[in-house]
Amino acid sequence: MDRRIQKTRESIFSAFSSLLAHKRYSKITVQDIIDEANIGRSTFYSHFETKDDLLKALCSDIFDHIFSEDLISESTHDFSYTSNDLKSKITHILYHLKDSKRDIKGILSCESRELFLSVIKTYLEQLFNGYITNDSLNEIPKEYVVNHMAGSFVETIKWWMHNDMAQSPEELSRYFFAVISPPLSHKSNISIHI
């Protein structure tokens, strides 16, 4: 993407996140976003058709990077040296959510939180789907297990946000796997590559 276009998008995202932090989503107008970002109306509409499109783009922007296949070294964390095991991926996701705390908190406090949670759950289902082996499900539908894990992780994120992200990503990842691992590995013989 052209550097000017990227800078404008980031400016719009930042303005939108700032507004979400102190104003209800339904009360935010496109004009509010334009004023906060200090851009023209035509500039906004050349990037987004509506504020709902902006919200979806903000979610996708966050998640496309978070759920990237390659774990790279970043300013707050470095998972480039790890294997792509599920625990590393989950901890990596938690670091990104923490780095995007202001945006995430704004989104979770607005009326469109269900859209955000639905988008992240879809990404999580794709992630978990790759780590559960079909041959060990022992008559439990894989879709059920994937849905359960993704739903549990979404609830974990909500709990973490509610507690102002007091736990480190590593600690929260440990909580999550301590809760899902015993039933998966001891009771149902479901194989998951952690």
Rank of each mutant, 00 (worst) to 15 (best):
M165V: 12
I140V: 15
Y175D: 15
S191V: 11
N189A: 11
H65T: 13
C110Q: 05
S88H: 15
V119R: 08
A166T: 13
F13Y: 15
E125D: 12
L184M: 13
V179Q: 09
S191P: 00
T50N: 02
H77I: 08
H96P: 01
A57V: 04
E36A: 06
N84K: 05
K98A: 05
I90Y: 08
T91R: 05
A166L: 12
V30L: 00
F16E: 00
I62V: 04
I90L: 14
S11T: 11
E69F: 06
D32A: 10
T29N: 09
S68P: 01
S60Y: 10
A57G: 05
L115E: 06
D52V: 06
T76K: 09
L19Y: 04
T29D: 03
Y95M: 08
K158N: 05
F153P: 00
S11K: 13
E74N: 05
D61S: 13
I34F: 00
T50H: 01
Y95K: 02
G40T: 12
L94K: 02
K89Y: 08
I34W: 03
D135Q: 07
V179T: 13
S14D: 09
S73E: 10
D164G: 07
L20W: 11
G106Y: 04
L124R: 00
T29L: 11
Y81H: 12
F128H: 08
Y81L: 07
H22N: 14
Q167E: 11
A166E: 14
H96I: 02
F79S: 13
S173Q: 10
W159F: 09
D32H: 15
L184T: 11
Q6V: 02
F13Q: 11
S136M: 00
Y144R: 13
I107Y: 02
F176V: 10
R102P: 02
K98I: 01
I28W: 03
T122H: 09
I39R: 10
I194A: 12
S173A: 14
Y45D: 09
I90F: 07
I93Y: 10
L94V: 04
F13P: 05
Q126W: 11
P169S: 03
D164W: 08
H148E: 14
N134H: 02
M149V: 07
L20Y: 14
L127Q: 02
I72C: 15
D99W: 09
S112I: 03
I66H: 01
S188Y: 13
N163W: 11
K87F: 13
S17Y: 04
L172W: 02
E170D: 14
S118L: 00
E155S: 13
A15V: 07
E69Q: 09
E171R: 12
T122E: 07
D53E: 15
N84P: 01
D78M: 05
Q126Y: 15
S100A: 14
D32S: 14
S88G: 15
E170W: 07
D53W: 15
N84Q: 04
C110T: 08
I34Q: 04
I180L: 11
H65D: 15
E143F: 12
I190F: 06
I72R: 14
F128K: 04
D164F: 05
W159L: 10
